[in-house]
Simulated scan of single mutants.
Amino acid sequence: MATNKRTGAGKSGGRDSSILAKIANHEIANKGRRAACDAVYVSKKLLRSTGKAAWIVGTSFLILVVPLLIQAERDQMLGEIELQQASILGPPPPGALQ
């Protein structure tokens, strides 16, 4: 009975695991893993700082711009109320102070 050795047989071949171990432990593979870990680390820090910057911008917008928008809306509403009152009451008398 002849034994059948295949090179692509996985663990049964025995040689595949040692070749894969050599490749996985090679210096180039280690450098690639380190580069990938460094890229992930930098990406996380970039996302975190970008999130902080977005929070600062949003908070600044709320503090600085929203009160101005509210004041503009309030002025517009007062102008509309004055126009409604003027149309109801009629024009002021000619000698009245404005």
Rank of each mutant, 00 (worst) to 15 (best):
L64N: 06
A29L: 01
V66W: 00
A36G: 00
W55R: 14
E80R: 13
A36L: 12
R74C: 06
V66C: 03
G58A: 06
I70N: 03
R74I: 08
A35S: 13
W55L: 11
I81T: 11
I19S: 05
L47W: 02
G58R: 03
N25E: 15
V65A: 12
A54Y: 04
I19Y: 03
A35T: 05
V65M: 07
I56L: 13
L47Y: 04
L83V: 07
V57D: 04
V40Q: 06
T50C: 05
D38S: 09
I23H: 08
L20I: 10
I56N: 05
R74H: 13
I63S: 01
C37S: 10
N25I: 00
L64W: 06
D75Y: 09
L47N: 08
E27Y: 05
E82A: 14
A36M: 06
K44D: 07
I70L: 14
M77L: 13
T59I: 04
A39C: 04
L68G: 12
S43Y: 03
K52T: 07
S49I: 07
A39Q: 06
L83F: 03
N30S: 09
R48L: 10
K45H: 05
E80K: 14
A29T: 15
C37I: 08
E27V: 06
A24N: 14
E27Q: 14
D75I: 07
A72Q: 09
L46S: 08
L46K: 12
R48W: 06
E82F: 09
S49N: 10
K52L: 11
A53L: 10
L62W: 06
V40H: 03
L78M: 11
V66N: 00
E27M: 03
G58S: 10
E73K: 13
D38L: 09
A21C: 05
A29S: 15
A35L: 13
V65F: 10
L64C: 10
L64T: 10
E73N: 12
P67D: 00
V40S: 04
K45M: 07
R34E: 15
M77H: 07
I23D: 03
D38C: 01
L62M: 13
V66H: 01
K22W: 02
E80F: 06
G51M: 02
H26V: 01
E27I: 05
L62D: 04
L83M: 09
A36P: 01
A21Y: 05
L68H: 04
L78T: 09
V57M: 07
W55E: 13
N30K: 15
V42W: 04
V65I: 15
N25C: 04
V66Y: 02
W55I: 08
F61L: 09
L78Q: 10
L20V: 05
L62P: 01
R74W: 13
S43A: 15
A72W: 08
F61V: 11
R33K: 15
F61Y: 15
A39N: 05
R33C: 02
D38M: 06
I28Y: 06
L64G: 02
L46C: 03
R34C: 00
V65T: 11
A54W: 03
